[in-house]
Design a binder for these strands. Structure first.
Lengths: 153, 153
DNA sequence: ATCAATCGTTGACATTTTCAATGATCCATA
DNA sequence: TATGGATCATTGAAAATGTCAACGATTGAT
């Protein structure tokens, strides 16, 4: 069996259980399903959800340090090292010394990185639209806003 | 560093990036943060988020088969085996033969399982309330409803 | 009666997570 | 201005999770 297959299908029997109201479970499930979708969508550009996130921030113009990436993506700093290593190896990003602090390293997208990023972005957008097909535009915006607020006060 | 520490803190610099609107990332992050919290809350009763979910459904009265658990929790059937093994070893659940199909196994909470489950439920509820402190009751209900709808048509 | 499909299970393997330790650098302050 | 504690990226090891293929038992359709 594969996990991402049954999305938006009819409600399974167990969805009656009050566990189906646990925010934690809902998040886990929607994320699990979405992850599979996103990874599938990103396979064309040889990225995974994770490396895509890093590339996305590297190409954002915000000049993130690795520590900022770690915190923002809820990953351990050591995981960022591996992700950036991989992207750097492929010539999609470069590490630069921090502007004011020589301990930090800023991760920046290269032109090639920007190119891949544009493709990846389009793919992910399509994948998300797909996943949230059951919600109309307003509901989708509401969901986004609520998630953001829950996260960042 | 630990991941769950900074929740609901002030908005980090990177939250400006348009990536902060990616539903996928928002879900991943909220889930990651919540997961750490839940596991922390469940440590008292020696459960993890996963085993808690299984125990919860086992105690729901819905008499779930292992396959139903796998699908509902977005896990591979083989992962359910391990989770149920562990709970059964601790005497919290039992496997019963399927009512109509002898291949399936129904997972049921024991009295002791119910007892632990009640404690775990309270812990998780508190943890969730904590995580969603920024949302009022109505918003929380909206979030729940939107997540449910996105998942099950 | 047979054959394909489904269920739980096992075992192997890859990926991800988590944690502690290290050298380089920063910053406060004595 | 030197010293010590904190922070940064990095390494490496251990634990948890995810993925996949194969198996025996059982089902249901032909």
């Amino acid at each position: 069996m594969t996990i991402g297959d049954a999305v938006g299908t009819t409600q399974p029997r167990l969805a009656q259980a009050s566990i189906a109201d646990d925010i934690g479970l809902l998040l886990a499930k929607l994320h699990a399903v979405g992850s599979v979708r996103n990874n599938r969508a990103l396979a064309d550009v040889q990225l995974r959800e994770r490396s895509y996130s890093v590339l996305r921030l590297a190409c954002s113009g915000l000049e993130p340090t690795q520590r900022e990436l770690a915190e923002f993506l809820s990953l351990d700093p050591s995981q960022i090292v591996a992700l950036v290593d991989e992207l750097e190896r492929r010539g999609l990003v470069v590490r630069e010394q921090g502007r004011t602090d020589r301990r930090q390293k800023i991760v920046l997208g290269t032109p090639e990185g920007e190119r891949i990023h544009a493709q990846a972005l389009a793919a992910v957008r399509a994948s998300e639209r797909d996943q949230l097909a059951a919600l109309d535009d307003e509901e989708e915006a509401t969901l986004r806003a609520l998630l953001r607020r829950a996260l960042w006060h």
